[in-house]
């Protein structure tokens, strides 16, 4: 009915949707620029894979363990860095992501540079679809709740939010924790689909890929994350027909898409000439 290749693409679209939606919570709704999402994914992937391999837990439990593991580290790592803003936060998360990768590269437990083998294949399309629905459901509930309004308030103006009695550090930590949880879930699904893990795939280019998905789809839009994930998963595969020119065109596509629709496909248009996140970025402005 549907060939393994298309099945694989659908599964990857699903996993990337989870990654993009969870990053969207951090970036699109709370306005925190994180370039270390792949690290959370790898924490979830390794966490759940190790649990499966060593304790033989049922799939759902392993996934949960991986996700909680990622969330735990998300909070631990996130706490100190959340004091940072804008590009500084971005570069700090990038650094943290690289540190996580290097640690995995050197751990005996995770197979080091050789990688982790023999993870059983448990992820199916059904699991992925359920996980995507679960992620989208929970995240949209959060966004429509009091917590979500606090997130958006922080995005719009952190100082103002603080003065309205919103504990921005608490909410930012919460946001990173939740985002990392779902990134870990995506990582767990990924690990049990690929059956092999190697830290090299969780470098900063992968984080950048997630970032592109969110921005391309449109910040602060659930559908946007899905559409961004779909486009950026499918386009490189589609471009396989042009062989040598594949990544050349891919790069050009990114530039062109931003030119045509800088707010992303489903992003909110600019308000009062202030770009989304614009206000937020105006802080910590360096002087030459």
């Amino acid at each position: 009915m549907i060939g393994p290749y298309y099945l694989q693409l659908l599964i990857l679209i699903g996993i990337n949707t989870i990654m993009a939606t969870s990053l969207n919570l951090i970036l699109g709704y709370t306005g925190q620029l994180s370039i270390g999402h792949a690290a959370f994914m790898s924490l979830g992937a390794y966490g759940s894979a190790l649990v499966t391999l060593h304790f033989g837990f049922p799939f759902l439990v392993s996934l949960l363990c991986g996700a909680l593991f990622a969330a735990f580290f998300g909070i631990i790592i996130g706490l100190p860095t959340l004091r940072l803003k804008g590009d500084y936060l971005a570069i700090a998360t990038l650094g943290l992501g690289e540190i996580v990768r290097i640690v995995f590269l050197n751990l005996e437990l995770t197979g080091g540079a050789v990688g982790l083998r023999g993870i059983p294949k448990k992820t199916t399309l059904l699991w992925v679809v359920l996980a995507v629905l679960f992620t989208v459901f929970i995240l949209s509930r959060i966004i429509r709740s009091r917590i979500g309004r606090a997130f958006i308030a922080i995005r719009e103006d952190e100082t103002a939010a603080d003065s309205m009695g919103i504990n921005s550090t608490y909410y930012k930590t919460l946001c990173f924790g939740v985002g990392a949880f779902f990134a870990g879930l995506g990582g767990g699904l990924f690990a049990h689909y690929m059956r092999y893990l190697n830290p090299n795939s969780f470098g900063f280019m992968r984080s950048i890929e997630h970032l592109c998905m969110v921005v391309l789809g449109g910040l602060g839009n659930m559908w946007g994350a899905f559409i961004g994930a779909t486009i950026l998963t499918v386009t490189p595969e589609l471009l396989r027909t042009v062989a040598d020119l594949r990544l050349l065109i891919y790069g050009a596509v990114l530039v062109l898409m931003m030119r045509v629709r800088p707010q992303g496909l489903l992003g909110q248009p600019l308000r009062n000439g202030i770009p989304l996140l614009g206000r937020f970025f105006q802080q910590a402005r360096p002087k030459l």
């Binding site: 891919y250 931003m258 996140l277």
Partner: peptide, 29 residues
């Protein structure tokens, strides 16, 4: 001129993605 100027008035994230695109394009060229 090609990748950043058209995005001067948009969010800086858009410009960042554009920069990433330009980087991928140039290294593969």
């Amino acid at each position: 001129y090609l990748a950043y100027r058209p995005l001067r008035q948009s969010s800086r994230l858009a410009a960042l993605i554009s920069a990433i695109g330009a980087s991928i394009f140039l290294s593969n060229l």
